[in-house]
Design a binder for these strands. Structure first.
Length: 147
RNA sequence: AACGCGGAUGGGUUUGUCGCUGUUUUUACGAACAGAGGAAAGUCCGGGCAUCGCAGAGUACCAUGCUUCCUAACGGGAAGGCAUUUUGACGGAGGACAAAAUGACAGAAAGUGCCACAGAAAACUACCGCCACAAUUCGUUGUGGUAAGGGUGAAAACGGGAGGUAAGAGCUCACGGAUGCAGUAGGCAACUACUGUAUCGGGUAAACCUCAUGGGAUGAAAAGCCAAAUAAACCGAGGUUCGAGGGUGACUCGCCCAAGCUCGGAGGGUAGGCCGAUAGAGGUAAAUGGCGACAUUUGCCCCAGAUAAAUGACAAACAUCCACUUGUUGGAUACAGAACCCGGCUUAUAAAUUCGCGUUACAA
């Protein structure tokens, strides 16, 4: 599944504020990744409507940000966002499989922090590494919760 | 021909794999079709649309400023007038003609202010000079007159000539120039030409100001609809007292109004969703009218609609240009991304094409 539909985007202002307030962050080269792991769904709630919503919910939701402060022109920002989104789309499968194993949802807030422009050949390997680091963190935190 | 400067046109094409947004279709998987710009930008003007207010008057504030026309409207555009500059051709020169570019292009004769440096003085001006008178130690000194001459400056009291005078001065005269007013002729008008008459007042209004004309505020995060949560905050009618306070988004005058109470109504509204919101002052072709901006008629076309915000990524081929080590070579392909919608303005823009100007070289 290499799709990337709207369900996988982080749109809600409230959730974004929660992610920013959570302050769990991974720094890696040109990126700053903030994330919030939602607790795994254990019991099926009695409310039928909310249950359906949770089933349809995507495992990972992401918001990609390129600050206006670093890139003044809208064309540059759009181009970078597209490249980053494409890299994420092609490599997110590992992450989603992992999340499905652990039965938890995650919200991601990815910020590009470099002043220089970059192309696909530069971005893609960085995203791969970043996702591997994220998976390690998820393992660590879920173990802590179990203990 | 090359280079430079300034304008106009222009804004690469195709295939494959994996995706994104919308519409249509399908039970579903999926499929088909469409998917950034000339500036989408700056947010500088003008509208549409919507809400609030609507009781007005005056002042203030802001904008505009040759004329006529175009337009939904404009501070935009078209045509014209005038001024300045440049170029060309005519001429001994004055001059006047043509073309192009530029112009916040109403008023400086209502008032106030300002005019660097230099200069005596930047607007009730006398430094040198010239002239008269007085004094004199005969070197000059003082008082007054004088804008013809010198010097300064971007600019020095209309120009140079004659008369005149103590010396001079539009003081007078002829010629010429400028400005106001009146008339005649042409033009819709700005204005132009001529005649008469009065005057000779330096510049600056992108200094205050004066005059004329126009201007309600807000802005899609507006407004409307549905509606978990939450709260009793809401609306309509009646009605008493007070005139404190509030509203009429600057001020003054003027005008209007509350709460408690009674009766009636069942809504209000956050997250979220829908709508606004994409068929329009729309494109395009032809004909007709007009110098033109543009208008009218007819035919054809439907051409993004996202919302933490789609329109992409990768691979390859071609096209155009540049470089050299000339080949299965290496580079380059601008400015820039819709956010309610239109009309403008301004700014950015590679290659290529094209127009104008300048420089250089060659030929005749």
């Amino acid at each position: 599944m290499l799709k990337f539909s709207k369900k996988e985007r982080l749109c809600s202002k409230i959730v974004i504020e929660e992610v920013l307030a959570n302050k769990k962050t991974i720094y890696y080269q040109p990126f700053k990744l903030m994330y919030l792991i939602h607790k795994p769904v254990e019991s099926i709630s009695t409310d039928f409507n909310s249950n359906i919503e949770q089933v349809e919910e995507a495992w990972a939701k992401i918001a990609i940000v390129v600050p206006k402060r670093l890139f003044k022109r809208a064309v540059d920002r759009n181009a970078l966002k597209r490249i980053i989104r494409e890299s994420y789309r092609l490599n997110k499968e590992i992450l989603i499989e992992h999340l499905a194993q652990h039965n938890c949802h995650i919200s991601l807030f990815l910020i590009y922090t470099d002043k220089n422009k970059a192309d696909f050949q530069f971005i893609e390997p960085k995203i791969k590494v970043l996702l591997q680091q994220l998976i390690k963190r998820i393992n660590f935190e879920s173990n802590q919760n179990n203990n």
